[in-house]
Amino acid sequence: MARQKRKIIDSWIIQYYDKVLAISLRLTGNREDAGDCTQEVFIKAWEKLGSFRGDSHPMAWLKRIAINTCYNFLNRNKVKQWDAVEDISTSEEPVPGAQFRTFDPAYLRVLSPLERSVLVGRVYDELSFKALAAALDTSENSAKVSYHNAIGKLRKVMT
């Protein structure tokens, strides 16, 4: 039983590590934290494997764990991660003639951990509001509000 569980997680580490790392990178913004979060995702998956019913794709399940893990990480490290936000709105002049400034990942720092998690989950990782609400332990409505707030804030810093 224990060996079988470990083998499943091993195969997932081989197949999905890069995808989970990509989600973690988008959410944490740096490789070191993303690596730590990715490790935590697979350990959580090993711990919760019994609750994975197998009716969805393993990656869909891992995505939710990844969003939840990174969201918790961002909350725990709020001060360290989000303290240099003020400079962003004046950091770069818009390119003449362009509709938006060139995107800088640092712009994501204007978002709260919840807004960032919902935006990344929606726009890049193709998760529904329902799945995001479950992953982030919030309501579907709150996830929708956070998504619209995130888009509004990004528009503001990018135009």
Partner: peptide, 16 residues
């Protein structure tokens, strides 16, 4: 990423 994957596998083995 390969050394990181191995590290995660080892962690899982250790936890097991």
């Amino acid at each position: 990423t390969i050394p990181r994957r191995i590290k995660v596998m080892r962690k899982v083995r250790y936890r097991t």
